[in-house]
Simulated scan of single mutants.
Amino acid sequence: MENSDTTFTQQVQKLHQLTVYGRWLFVSCLWLTIGSVSLWDIREEIALWKQYFTWSALRYGLYFHPLATFGLSFCIGMTASVLIWQSRNILIGLPPQEKERLEKQVCQIRKQGKTHPLWKWICE
């Protein structure tokens, strides 16, 4: 029974680790797609900011490029949310609801067996 509990706990930890990797992969893909297109759209303003940076120049540069501003805001917001989520999990630990959700998902993976896409990363 004890071996089963330690195995289950390890599988829950593996699933949590995969969740962390998945979130950072998502953020990386956002920066490589939306972030790079947004930065490319405001490249002329960035060149001006390098020479003469003022908060007014930043404000008007972002104001006159609303799609780039939205894209950068979305990338920065998602990065900040993943950082805060991971920091909370490291400092305080997983909340009970999150732990329960992970445990239910591991049970579902075990129940479905080798046909589940995460089986080889969680159970083997």
Rank of each mutant, 00 (worst) to 15 (best):
1 M>T: 06
4 S>F: 01
4 S>H: 03
4 S>T: 04
6 T>S: 12
6 T>C: 00
7 T>D: 11
9 T>C: 02
11 Q>R: 14
11 Q>Y: 03
12 V>C: 13
13 Q>K: 09
13 Q>G: 02
14 K>L: 11
14 K>E: 04
14 K>N: 08
14 K>M: 08
15 L>R: 04
15 L>F: 07
15 L>I: 02
16 H>K: 09
17 Q>F: 11
17 Q>N: 06
17 Q>H: 15
17 Q>Y: 12
19 T>C: 06
20 V>K: 12
23 R>W: 02
24 W>H: 06
25 L>D: 10
26 F>L: 12
26 F>A: 13
26 F>R: 12
29 C>Y: 10
30 L>V: 08
30 L>A: 07
31 W>R: 05
31 W>G: 04
32 L>W: 15
32 L>R: 11
36 S>E: 05
38 S>T: 07
40 W>F: 13
40 W>D: 03
40 W>C: 07
41 D>T: 14
41 D>F: 02
42 I>C: 06
43 R>M: 06
45 E>Y: 09
47 A>Y: 11
47 A>K: 15
47 A>M: 11
48 L>W: 08
49 W>N: 02
49 W>G: 02
50 K>P: 00
50 K>W: 09
50 K>F: 07
52 Y>L: 05
56 S>N: 12
57 A>M: 10
58 L>M: 13
60 Y>S: 08
64 F>R: 14
64 F>C: 04
65 H>Q: 09
69 T>Q: 08
69 T>V: 03
72 L>F: 02
72 L>G: 07
73 S>F: 15
73 S>D: 03
74 F>Y: 15
75 C>N: 09
76 I>G: 03
76 I>V: 15
76 I>N: 05
77 G>P: 00
78 M>Q: 12
79 T>R: 03
81 S>R: 13
81 S>A: 13
83 L>A: 14
85 W>M: 12
87 S>K: 12
87 S>C: 09
89 N>L: 01
89 N>S: 11
90 I>K: 10
93 G>S: 07
94 L>R: 05
95 P>T: 07
96 P>I: 05
96 P>F: 00
97 Q>F: 04
100 E>F: 00
100 E>D: 09
103 E>K: 12
105 Q>D: 09
106 V>F: 02
107 C>F: 01
107 C>I: 01
108 Q>P: 00
109 I>V: 06
111 K>R: 13
111 K>W: 02
112 Q>L: 11
117 P>H: 05
118 L>R: 08
121 W>M: 10
123 C>G: 00
123 C>K: 01
